[in-house]
Design a protein around this nucleic acid. Structure first.
Lengths: 179, 179
DNA sequence: CGAAATGGGTCAGCATTGTTGACTTAAAAT
DNA sequence: ATTTTAAGTCAACAATGCTGACCCATTTCG
């Protein structure tokens, strides 16, 4: 980029700004908006929790683990991996830290002693609570503003966007590993 | 973690799985679900585009830049920074690459020649199109399944979740820099 | 029973994308 | 003429993904 404005001699005509990427269907505009919605809502939603996490030297990945362990006490490592869809190594980093710092507890499975059943300790539950509370307000406000029918629509669309595997997980139907 | 199942003598009772983090309000369950919805929908939505990007050796960050430049032809660097809310240095990496590879064009502002007005080249627009088309199907399907009222609810909730600054941007009202 | 499969773990190294901090340059503004 | 401002650059660091290559302890299966 060294000197984009350097050669003052050559006049570069300001581009005749094209229309925002020629809209083919009319529906396109709606879809583009959806991209924005997802980007901004996700970013700002996660940012809320990030602030709390920073204080503790933890990251988003830790939050995710806490969340899903909290929602699924006794979940195994491989199930957690299936839900998060990350690698064992990525999870290990985060999970070991959570265990070391006493946020997550573990116990071998009763029948199959290879399993490592994960739970939140009191400390972990408290943190998860705190993180949740921060995000909670946003959701609550947004839900209130949208009314019950709006919330229903929100859910339906979000479910429609995610993979079948994720949907199944949410239905409790899910081993989550299938697709 | 070296030997969590190592001392076979000591019996570690399987934790009596506590209920999924004691639900205080009834509303809590709904809010927790929203966390899941955002996580899964966002992840799976972005993944669709990631596959295309991988082929070209580009990442999500590139997609974001392409998207917002495409939506806002002639946007300045600082406006783009305000929308994305990342640092100049982070953006530079990605943006320089896009310019070098001919996806993004630039021209100095007419009145204020310090400005660097960004646009998509044809090549850039084509790529953005391709990325969009991939995501488009998901949205289309989800929207169809939810009906017009559902879509309206989705929008309202998503807007409610994001920061005011993002909302303003979406309304076109926005300098996006204010909060 | 012995071999294979499974759940889990570890070491090492790399890529992407975000961050700080410290400066430079060119063009506006005052 | 000085100060702002828009943009860019170098350097280093952190969080989280990923791959590849192995190791252990159990459980299962032929």
């Amino acid at each position: 980029m060294t000197g984009m404005l350097k050669d003052k001699t050559r006049f570069v005509p300001p581009p005749k700004l094209p229309p925002p990427t020629p809209v083919v269907d009319l529906g396109d505009a709606e879809m583009r908006m959806a991209q924005d919605l997802l980007f901004f809502a996700y970013r700002d939603f996660t940012n809320v929790a990030d602030q709390v996490l920073d204080e503790l030297g933890l990251g988003r990945a830790h939050h995710r683990a806490l969340h899903f362990i909290g929602r699924n006490p006794g979940i195994t490592v491989s199930s957690l991996l299936a839900v998060l869809r990350i690698t064992k190594q990525s999870l290990a980093r985060v999970l070991n830290q959570l265990v070391d710092e006493g946020f997550v507890g573990q116990a071998p499975g009763f029948e199959d002693r290879r399993l490592r059943l994960l739970t939140l300790t009191d400390k972990g539950a408290a943190l998860e609570r705190r993180l949740f509370d921060a995000q909670r307000d946003r959701i609550a406000a947004a839900y209130t503003g949208a009314g019950p029918a709006g919330v229903q629509g929100f859910r339906t669309v979000m479910r429609g966007i995610m993979d079948r595997g994720a949907r199944d997980y949410m239905d409790g139907t899910g081993s989550a590993e299938d697709t």
